[in-house]
Nucleic acid binder design. Sequence first.
DNA 1: AGCACGCCGACT
DNA 2: GTCGGCGTGCTC
Length: 803
Amino acid sequence: MTQYAEVIVDVPTMQTNTPYTYVIPAEFQEMLQPGMRVVVPFGNGGRKVQGVVWQLIDQVEDATVTLKAIDTVMDPAPVLDAELMQLADWLAKTTYAFTITCLQTMLPNALKANYEKWVTPTASLPEETRQVLFGQQDRLLWDDDVAPAVVKQLMRLAKQQQVTVSYAVQNKGHVKTVTMVKPALTPAELQAARASLRKGALKQEQLLTYLIDHSKPVQQTVLEKQLGLSASTIKTGEANGWLSRSQAEVYRDPFQSAVTTTKALQLNPDQQTAVDAINQATDDQQSTPFLLQGVTGSGKTEVYLQTIANTLAQGKQALMLVPEISLTPQIVGRVRGRFGRQVAVLHSGLSAGERFDEWRRISRGEARVVVGARSAVFAPIKNLGVIIVDEEHEASYKQEDNPRYHARDVALWRGRYHHCPVVLGSATPSLESRARAQKQRYQRLLLPTRANQQALPEVSVVDMTEELKHHKESNFSTALMTALKDRLERGEQSLLMLNRRGFSSFVMCRDCGFVLTCPNCDISLTLHMDTKTMKCHYCGHEEPIPHRCPNCKSRHIRYYGTGTQKVEAELHELLPEARVIRMDVDTTRRKGAHERLLKQFGAHQADILLGTQMIAKGLDFPDVTLVGVLNADTALGLPDFRASERTFQLLTQVSGRAGRAKKAGEVVIQTYNPDHYAIQLAKRQDYEQFFVREMHLRHRGNYPPYYFAVKLTVSDETESVAATAIHQIVQQLQTTLSPNAIMLGPTPGAIARINKRYYYQLVIKYKQEPQLQTALFKLLSQAQRKSRSGLQIAIDNNPMSFM
DNA sequence: AGCACGCCGACT
DNA sequence: GTCGGCGTGCTC
């Protein structure tokens, strides 16, 4: 019989990042299982914390410690199965996060603990004090709202045992229930009851008539509405023994709007080949990763849907990840249209309760297809048959705080666990994935043509330096203006994309397009207004801000950046008759605003949709025949090794928005670097050439995917503390790292000070460093001790950017 | 994290 | 002389 449980407690620190052993009280011995949440005493103050049962054991190794017992068990069944527990362990190790943090990431927020601290008076507390502190209440909630003076007093009283402090761990995961009503008597008996009613008891007569005719349980509120009864009539019915009431569990239904069902579409030969290969893997339980590389509009979604259909036919479940930004009603509608109520959708717009309900539907196997953004990769699916990662190159799959996981990596892990295929789909795969396909680690599936036979849009590149010579400064070139006017006349729609403005500025010459770059790194320098210098974030190089362009001696050198508002204003001036919808963080902040704007545009209530990258992904508007990119360079100017890749991907993706239906599309890209390979190859929509080119550069610069990378960031309120700490880290690591490892930095963070904290960072590039993981964990433990003074350290394994 | 224990300054 | 400030160490 198992007597002990190892529990991971909800105390996210390095020192407590290990299982603690507890005695299992007799009443829980039979039912307790790993993956259940428990409440355990922790520490000597009678504090209670939540924990997750990690393992059951028969014997304890170290008999010297006296063990405490589990307080309560919070779940009747495990909330995390063996797979997810194992996954949490792997995640913790690979992302340098605490195990408890990983476990919590996998659970819906509703299952996170709610801690409360209560104070109760004891007999020795003088009556006056009791009156002042407690009034009519017999206990007092001790939270952050308690005044400091009262806190002091309470602490003193606790020491004198005039009050006692108790801790409560609350379960937030509330199951919504409704009251059901059903007859408790036979129809004959009910008829007898109806016959003996006093005259004029109309409501009761109605109720009895209903009960005679309907033997099935019905929701009380539905019954009330249907018959126009009040709750008291039903209560009377219950009191008379006619009916019985019970509680039934229901799911909160966020948006079960009607969907039009769709049938499987006819596949073209390439799509068919892809579907066959993936289905074969599902059927043979092969955990092959596939890279589904298909040009924009090539019908990747249909491939996904048909492999999901096959998975369901095999009696298995499917998981489909999409970037949060493209988790639109459009895509959700397509999946729901095919698989109906079997689909669960996990997105950020759900309330905690709704999310909890979707999670339970999945866990119970009632939802067999799961669609969701990043965190949906942890959906509690027991029997996976296929995992799809759409737009696998999207940076939003990487979580930016702990645990810093990449959903694509988690998907691959789960694929291996379930022996099921993982499909990574993209028109512009990440270099990492494309390179793995090259090395036969992934099987590559190609969709080289558009599903509607439509040609890829014609792309033209406009050199903005030339434009500026001809007329005054404008965000719009003549070519783009002409194209826009043309669409207006024809009643067709246009998309205008303004590249995200880098959060650190760079300096560029308006005359010749020259961007100041670092002499050592081939990377543009970043403007630091605080120190009035140009800095390189890779090697720390620093130089003064130029007033003349070093290349053409022009004085038109300035920092770069255009806001959507400014562009909108100019658009109104140039094309007063055009109806414009602006989409950026300002106009989409409110919940649902994003969908509303897209809907408006889809309904042709505007001619031009102006926005940031959020308009680049996955939108499908048949009347859009023109796509304009106002400033293709912004991302290129960022001092990051992925700058070219991001630019290429973005331009290709946004170009794909044009000409999706019958009409041909046109794309105009405005740039100050018309000859840059990322722009030229995006113009030709030549991913393969870009891949070759970029891989060559990555190879030369020792960047991923040729090298692994890990980024360390330290921060402190005092700059010198952070600086000293990072230098100590460098010294310490240098003793463990091999000579092949390359250190970049330490350098100040891209934003040297955020929230009054100073940031310093260090990037390590390496091929093989068996000691590194241990060294980094050691570093974390050491840092924990110093964290009292405010020093923080973060480790980002395989960072998306070095900035 | 949060609590207890333990060592130094301004008060009854 | 004590009360109470916050600097370490531990939590099955």
